[in-house]
């Protein structure tokens, strides 16, 4: 075990996978000089410029050539600096990468990963650099989606994504790059589709993803002081979605609160809530509640960002409303 930051854990995963498999290549803006979030420093020195490609500011070319490289037998890991910029290359992601295996009757293989920084995190990046784009991706069948919450998962899930045979978008919450945690040394791989139950509880299930996992934990701590026992589940991936684990949990707690950073107008929490309301109906003692971001673009000023993002107090208020 080593104590690493999220950004160092990403680098560790990339190094691990590039050393293991020479088909793994990187491309993106400023990746050779180390990346603007410092997730790729030194990789060009170890693996050479042929495998670590610095690109122009050309997101369509980045994602499109990643797709072509995967078709050609490589296992590319592309970087989109901010997930908001998926909007500039969405055709390649949604119309080409997500659909080509299916449209070709399984002839075309697309083992590729696109990483991007995601979410707000109180960093003041404003409306065009802070969105929670994981729900955009979830609208499109054909994409796997990973959203790690701990340094250990930044390494393990990224390695898992690189070993997938399908295209995976990894959303790295930018508020988590600097957080530290224990990360297993050596080969560390987490398979996609397995949620993680951080703490067991009996009164309510709190489900979070990436940055909101910490919010769920903080809420669970405070609820414990009030004598309410909360179970906390980190979903880790949206596709595949570990519905079974959430249903199992709700079978004992009978209550579910889902915490999503993105706007509540639509989002992954709405899909999960609908599924649990249907398949877990008999176990529920209260309607499933969602605590989400407000339906506005993210404002720049810190006080305004706090106003619109979910926090532990709002989660606690939701739990109180159920009991």
């Amino acid at each position: 075990m080593a104590e690493l930051t999220g950004r160092d854990a990403i680098r560790a995963a990339l190094e691990q996978e590039m050393a293991r498999d020479e088909r793994v290549v990187l491309l993106g803006e400023d990746v050779a000089p180390g990346g603007v979030f410092k997730t790729t420093p030194g990789l060009v020195d170890r693996f050479g410029a042929e495998r670590v490609w610095d690109t122009p500011i050309s997101e369509q070319a980045i994602v499109g050539s990643a797709m072509g490289a995967a078709m050609g037998g490589l296992r590319p890991v592309a970087e989109i600096m901010f997930a908001d910029f998926y909007a500039t290359c969405w055709d390649l992601v949604a119309n080409e990468i997500a659909k080509t295996r299916y449209m070709t009757g399984g002839q075309v293989r697309l083992p590729l990963v696109v990483r991007g920084s995601n979410g707000g995190g109180g960093l003041g990046f404003g409306a065009q650099h802070s969105q929670s784009a994981e729900s955009w991706a979830m609208c499109v069948p054909g994409l796997k989606i990973a959203c790690p919450s701990t340094p250990s998962d930044f390494k393990g899930l990224l390695a898992g994504a690189i070993r997938e045979e399908d295209p995976v978008l990894v959303f790295e919450h930018k508020g988590l790059y600097g957080r530290t945690g224990e990360v297993p040394d050596g080969d560390h791989v987490v398979a996609l589709g397995e949620s993680h139950t951080l703490r067991e509880g009996s009164d309510v299930t709190l489900v979070g993803l990436a940055f909101t996992v910490g919010i769920c934990e903080a809420a669970a701590d405070q609820l414990a002081d009030e004598g309410i026992s909360a179970e906390v589940i980190d979903l880790r991936t949206l596709v595949p979605l570990d519905v079974a684990a959430v249903l199992r949990s709700v079978a004992t707690t009978n209550r579910l609160v889902i915490v999503e950073e993105g706007p509540g107008q639509l989002g992954w929490s709405a899909s999960l809530a609908a599924i649990v309301s249907d398949e877990g109906f008999d176990d529920l003692d209260a309607p499933v509640l969602r605590v989400c971001g407000a339906s506005v673009p993210l404002p720049a000023a810190g006080v305004l960002e706090e106003e619109v993002n979910p926090n532990a107090q709002r989660v606690i208020a939701a739990v109180r409303r159920m009991s």
Binding site: G126, Q128, P299, A300, A301, L304
Partner: peptide, 9 residues
């Protein structure tokens, strides 16, 4: 910009 845009806007 009413503190909504910030430096980049």
């Amino acid at each position: 910009c009413d503190a909504k845009g910030g430096s980049m806007h």
